[in-house]
Design a binder for these strands. Structure first.
Lengths: 209, 209
DNA sequence: TTCTTTGTGGTACGAACGTATCACGTAAAT
DNA sequence: ATTTACGTGATACGTTCGTACCACAAAGAA
């Protein structure tokens, strides 16, 4: 046989090509031929590794979610050893904002998938649409941590705050995407909102914007 | 000639058919034939009143924005003679949440258009994508009104609050759309957030939730 | 009445899409 | 060395889509 290629890696490469095309021309406009050309392979190969377009799309979503997870955890790790819950929350929320090319792609394509899932039950059944729940849990955990350290203002419902923070972050992300706002403005809005959740920092407030 | 039909009305009917199909099967999946069938006319007629599909889509977006504007103002008028800025803001924000079938359609299709506009410059050039700015201005106006009546807590930046409220509302709307949350939960989140913007009502707090 | 418009139906065309089929070379297995 | 399985290319098929074209009936203008 020919040189026994690694299927997993090949599928990843093709999936990345899919995401690039989707980011450039919109998820609705990607065809198998486009993906093949972008990946530098023949149409047949895309068929070979993903028998059908639907499977390709599903894998693309999965791949996207994985890449974002890696990115988010990398950001958290980059914020070296527990810089406090607020900083971690900030890092988490701002990782989701479409600031650079990668996060822009993520936001656009993920939103496209979400919109598609409303009318496509095959996508709706995919567990990655449930990922918002995972993010919600993580955020709630961080907030609860902050609460235990007595860092949040009294009367704050952590679950509710997690929901509103994520909704706000998503909404801000979309407004950046469509060019209504710049990333800095969105970050400011998030910061101001966090100000109302957290107590005033005793002395640690650095140069904020 | 045949019975001299009203073009504007006909175009509206076809546009509504477009929105219905888009709500049912997704905006990406609507074809001219689908719209024709949904409107109960021949394919030729859809071509006749909108020469090209692009023009049909553009008009559909315009029609959607108009319908939503009417809905929002109707809601505001229904809240008879100035029930206070907070109530008006609540009415405005909750009119945008996908609670019933009409607002669900609005939210889904409008979001689809927004996502499309990122990769389609013809849509991006459409002024209805700027409508978020109009909503932002309206909200800011209401908040400023409340500020003048001394109804908001001290230290509130009305412009910033308008932005965060709209972002949150949009994000919550999407989460309702994908089935992650119910409309009631979203409304509660909004209420709680408004609680932090407005002063505690002296005595007017009715049975809230 | 005769001649234009205006609205409408049917249908055909070219392109693009997802998918299926055929063919072939090469590396591993026997 | 022969056979078998794997990776890859090229291409064909059937469908669907947006658009264009042709024909015609009915109503106002001349």
């Amino acid at each position: 046989m020919p040189k026994r290629v690694d299927h997993a890696e090949r599928r990843s490469e093709i999936a990345e090509a899919l995401l690039r095309v989707a980011a450039r021309r919109g998820l609705h406009a990607v065809g198998m031929r486009d993906v093949a050309a972008e990946a530098g392979v023949s149409l047949r190969l895309v068929q070979y590794y993903f028998e059908t377009k639907e499977k390709l799309l599903l894998y693309g979503l999965q791949h996207l979610a994985e890449r974002f997870g890696e990115r988010a955890t990398a950001r958290l790790r980059a914020a070296e050893d527990d810089p406090g819950p607020r900083a971690m929350i900030e890092a988490m929320l701002k990782a989701a904002l479409p600031t650079d090319e990668e996060s822009r792609t993520f936001h656009l394509v993920y939103t496209s998938y979400a919109v598609l899932s409303v009318t496509d039950q095959a996508l709706a059944a995919q567990p990655f649409i449930n990922n918002p729940d995972a993010a919600e849990s993580a955020l709630t955990g961080l907030l609860r941590q902050a609460e235990e350290r007595d860092l949040v203002r009294p009367g704050v419902d952590v679950r509710l705050e997690a929901v509103s923070l994520l909704a706000m972050s998503a909404g801000l992300g979309t407004s950046i995407l469509v060019g209504q706002r710049g990333p800095e403005a969105a970050a400011t809005v998030l910061d101001r909102h966090l100000d109302r959740i957290f107590r005033d920092a005793p002395a640690a407030a650095g140069a904020r914007e």
